[in-house]
Design a protein around this nucleic acid. Sequence first.
DNA 1: CTGAAAGCGCTAACAA
DNA 2: TTGTTAGCGCTTTCAG
Lengths: 340, 340
Amino acid sequence: MQKPTLRDVAQAAGVHVATASRALNPNTRSLVNADTARRVSRAAKSLGYRPNPIARSLKTAKSLTVGVVLPDLTNPLFPPIVRGIDDLLGPAGYSALIVNTDNDPAREKAQIDSLRSRQVEGLIVATARLNHPLLTELHQQDVKMVLVNRRTDHLDVSSVVPDDAAGIAQAVAHLARLGHRRVLHLAGPATTSTGITRARSFRNAVREFDLVQDPALIAPCDFWAEAEGARAMRAALDAGTEFTAVIAGNDLLALGAYDVCGERGIACPDDISIVGFNDMPFLDKLRPALTTVAVPHQQIGVEAARMLLEAIDGPARPARSVLLPVSLVVRASTRKPAAG
Amino acid sequence: MQKPTLRDVAQAAGVHVATASRALNPNTRSLVNADTARRVSRAAKSLGYRPNPIARSLKTAKSLTVGVVLPDLTNPLFPPIVRGIDDLLGPAGYSALIVNTDNDPAREKAQIDSLRSRQVEGLIVATARLNHPLLTELHQQDVKMVLVNRRTDHLDVSSVVPDDAAGIAQAVAHLARLGHRRVLHLAGPATTSTGITRARSFRNAVREFDLVQDPALIAPCDFWAEAEGARAMRAALDAGTEFTAVIAGNDLLALGAYDVCGERGIACPDDISIVGFNDMPFLDKLRPALTTVAVPHQQIGVEAARMLLEAIDGPARPARSVLLPVSLVVRASTRKPAAG
DNA sequence: CTGAAAGCGCTAACAA
DNA sequence: TTGTTAGCGCTTTCAG
């Protein structure tokens, strides 16, 4: 028993395949006699007919597929974004094809090529660097895309990102209120919009809250990774930089700071307060539970998918940038500085 | 400038499209004059030709796509499995379509229907319950599939799972060696193969190491969730059951046990030792860092994908069950019992 | 070794 | 309202 095709259904219903097609397609159903339509539907159901989207795609030149480009699905940041994307795409009849680039530009190019050859109708990209020739190239070729989490410079492409500036400002305000005056920022890579936006916002907030402004209080990190956060933290300590609190560019960098506290017998939060960014899962289980900035990752995915579908369906719109609100989650890793 | 099709390439190379097709397809390339083949390849490259897999699929009835059915991508267990799957599938020209069921059978059915209508060539299923009518039905319809992580009863389907029995045996041995005699098992749901296999193995190991056998020392949990682990742990404590160590069916249940220790002022590992299962990310950051059984999740994905491709390409083979080796990771949540 | 021709399953003008 | 016709881009017999 072969899979029934539209022809089988048409035959069973005693109509032409074109009529069957119209009857089964919600958009064209109104063009066909209600009786006929019902007859076709019943025939389809009784045969267990399932339309073949491949044939449809070939005809309509729409694959009903979008590509999702991630550095690494294994990073706990991304699964919620993917969930959000899927949740919005599914009801619209679209599916997501996920690829991992491992932050390797060559691999990224290969993966995106593969997605394009699979005829994806658009891309959701989480790997943007500020200077990103590949994205520029894609944009010139009118590939529809939406950036998530991070953005690119000088490129008129839609994006959905957390309100990095507000998050850092809240973190600084929190520490200032507790009485901290010397706060170290573990700054993320300057190649990423999140890295530089958070660092810039940190400087602004430090000024605004009248904390100590000192270039040594900004420790650059070259990767968003725990080991790199630890390295930068050690370097700051070794250089004799004084501070009573740390705001990490993200949670992984904060974990690196935790590690160094462990190594050097620094008590958190008694000696040093630490704040992260992202609110990854299970941070509340750390000892001390990490104070961090919660980002609505799933919502980022939902918004990005929505914008991409708009771009696919609708006419060319101007690029939009959506900032999603964040909120400081105060846990046990921050407290007022030791009386000094 | 439209996307070039095979016809364009053929035209540019001055051959028929059939010849171009043969020249570009590695399998049929040998059927064509080497010179011609080279000419076609060059034309293809210079035009930037990318074959359209949709057209190919329509003709060959192969979608080069497999479905991956997960409870929830957001559970840290699954991203590594998906990575493993992708890593093996990619080089073979296949892609994975991921769906989340949220452990809801209705949603599972809908998602799998959607995958099938997308013509996936096979399924990798991580949601198996012991009694799982839907899987039985799929199997009867000759849907190719491989189960990961969990299995099903009475169904001759291939699976790739961790060596649950060995993992629990190692955990019990470790605690026995430390001197524990009364160990509580937070048993996972009896609807899942992992739940019952680990519980059975726990009973066997307790007997083997001559620890105290007491039905009260097996606390059943109805879900693989932190809150459920906490509930079961509280229940055991409230019932006055005595124990100096806990082996949780998985890490989430262990986290629930941690929570209860926090609530009731029980010190871990001083008062009670705790062991998890799976070695989720960041468990080493807990205080105390959790002793657990490490499972090669990525490897599970790789093996499952390999087996599925074999089933797709090759002739019908008998179902195979692969057990992947696990290893106990001793961290800070276990130590010898307080002298009593 | 290469060309001709047919067709995968569906949709979309165009006619009737 | 329905049927006719053509064709999406590719692979695959079958001839030549």
